[in-house]
């Protein structure tokens, strides 16, 4: 006599349990972005303040796009994913250039407004498969050319196996460590001309915009950047820009 146990119900139950565990688990761990802010205390000694030279400074302002029409002030929302739409503006050096945005008596001089509008676009891929930076990334990359050239050369060296063999796992890790060390040396090299980026955001802009810009810093190997409070001059320039561009 043969004894056969029917395992079908057992499989059914197991499948249910698997489904339960699959749905309840988090497989992907969250990623993190580390940021360091300067201290909030008032600096007593002016000499201790690190001053960015106006030639190197770029200020990026993130603002939320507002709806035009009968209800001013409401934020524009993406129709596909429901996210707040952010706009990116930037200016070089000081607000309003060397002469400043405010004339005598606090009058706004529109001619001095050096604010420009940009977009947060990632790379454009042409038919050959080459990436070309667009929007704010293109602007940052242009200013950080010298660093990026060196970093790209290092990347090529890494891929060519000049930092060590990429065949084994240990070798890869070692090569990556060497590459990271060399890259961080390039980023911190004081002799290379590189920009200082000041990131500002209006209160309405969404958190996503900030993270997107912080991402750009990482992508473009920017070593000096900071998050700063938005000033009156910045807000005035934004208003002035919109007035002259009918937005």
């Amino acid at each position: 006599m043969q004894i056969r146990v029917d395992f079908t119900p057992m499989v059914d139950m197991n499948m249910l349990l698997i489904t339960f565990f699959m749905l309840c688990t988090t497989m992907i761990k969250s990623q993190t972005l580390t940021i360091a802010l300067p201290t909030n205390e008032k600096v007593q000694n002016e000499e201790n303040m690190s001053q960015a030279s106006a030639n190197d400074a770029i200020t990026i302002i993130i603002d939320a796009k507002k709806k035009a029409g009968p209800t001013p002030g409401t934020l524009m929302v993406d129709s596909v994913n429901g996210n707040v739409v952010n706009e990116i503006y930037y200016y070089d050096g000081k607000p309003g250039g060397d002469e400043g945005i405010f004339g005598p008596g606090g009058v706004v001089i529109s001619a001095n407004n050096n604010l420009k509008k940009s977009e947060l676009l990632s790379d454009e891929v042409n038919s050959v498969g080459d990436h070309k930076a667009r929007g704010i990334r293109d602007i940052i990359q242009n200013r950080n050319k010298e660093v990026l050239e060196k970093i790209n050369a290092l990347k090529k060296d890494l891929n060519d196996g000049k930092f060590g063999s990429l065949e084994t796992k240990d070798g890869r890790e070692e090569a990556m460590a060497k590459y990271n060390e060399a890259a961080s040396k390039v980023r911190k090299d004081e002799n290379i001309k590189k920009p200082v980026i000041i990131i500002k955001s209006t209160p309405e802009a969404s958190y996503r915009g900030l993270v997107d810009i912080l991402d750009e810093m990482q992508i473009n190997s920017i070593s000096k950047y900071q998050i700063d409070n938005i000033t009156d001059a910045d807000l005035v320039m934004l208003d002035d820009y919109r007035k002259h561009h009918n937005e």
Binding site: V84, P203, E204, A205, S206, Y207, R208, L210, V211
Partner: peptide
């Protein structure tokens, strides 16, 4: 991601 910067700040 859609929290306003005001709150994050």
């Amino acid at each position: 991601q859609n929290t306003s910067f005001e709150i994050i700040h």
